[in-house]
Write a protein that binds this DNA or RNA. Sequence first.
DNA 1: ATTGTGTGTCAACAGTTGTTGGCATACGGT
DNA 2: ACCGTATGCCAACAACTGTTGACACACAAT
Lengths: 193, 193
Amino acid sequence: MAAPTQPTHPRRSDATRAAILRAARERFAADGYERATIRAIAADAQIDPSMVMRYYGSKEGLFAAAAEFDLRLPDLARVPPAHLGEVLIRHFLARWEGDETLVALLRAASTNPGAAERMRGIFVNQLAAAVATFGTDPTTTARRAGLVASQILGLAFTRYIVRLPPIVETPAEELVAWIAPTLQRYLTGVPED
Amino acid sequence: MAAPTQPTHPRRSDATRAAILRAARERFAADGYERATIRAIAADAQIDPSMVMRYYGSKEGLFAAAAEFDLRLPDLARVPPAHLGEVLIRHFLARWEGDETLVALLRAASTNPGAAERMRGIFVNQLAAAVATFGTDPTTTARRAGLVASQILGLAFTRYIVRLPPIVETPAEELVAWIAPTLQRYLTGVPED
DNA sequence: ATTGTGTGTCAACAGTTGTTGGCATACGGT
DNA sequence: ACCGTATGCCAACAACTGTTGACACACAAT
């Protein structure tokens, strides 16, 4: 009921919990929700499957813990308005390459309703909230954020899931050059331009 | 070895085969590859699960048959170059709303390697081939087609899979207005603009 | 030393999955 | 009318799934 992480005595099993979570993220990212079995995750973490159940309650609970994610978006109000698109695409590319949680979430969202719900939450709350911080018409922020999400998620889907060769082989810097103007227009442009 | 569809005597079980295929597409689109069980598909088609195996060999074989898909792209050489983006986004939106095969393929591609491979085939062969028909620099066509695919698939992913509210609620005509310029630039623009 | 609690293993359960073989029936050509 | 083949259903298999409970050990506090 108090803070979610109370300063309780650090448990002796913290290392095991972390190992489970790390293995779970790897498996969910590589195989998706249903193909990632608790037995395989436990084997990766070198413990018994029943430990997963004790510490995370169920497979759904494990996924919920493993898919905890913060986009860590910068304060867009401090970004020069003309560079919003570039800042965003750079941030997302870096965030994606460095943390497989997003890939796990992306793969699982295709088949698992809970994962899709969490994905909606992230992009509606975190991204739309960030977009709302700089002064655009409040009635269009949700739509602008949605359009940005469509391009960002499409890039991730083709690059990390489907592994479309032309997208995989394109260096990040060149992707930035192509996609930054798209995001810029979605954020600050008008439909008719 | 001859034509794929030989003029053999029309089989008495053609109706059953078609019912299986229709049910399979529905289930694959709604549930993804692993959650769509043969038993559920057979129940929808009101036949026995063993019939599915006899006619399509295996679950993989059934999916391969159900995911057969042609983008039916128009001849882009006949489209005014300035309207390429608009023509493409309109075509894709119509193709998506009218045939659930693409949604099935999209959902399955996240977890099933065969489905991802087919998705690559469709967008590399069909889309890149269409892009190549109008005279751009041949060294960039693959990349341009990939960028178009990233936006198209991202739109489909957010609209039909994750069901991101701002994207779902936006009428098709408005999506065209926003996304057509993006595709147009990916197809005919230069990275620096 | 003894208790109690947290940590870990093992074996098993009940349900579901793709898949297979056997058997009944209905059709089409002779 | 007869026979081969196609069509369909039924029951069952073996493997795998998430999940559970019993049991063994290690640690900390008394």
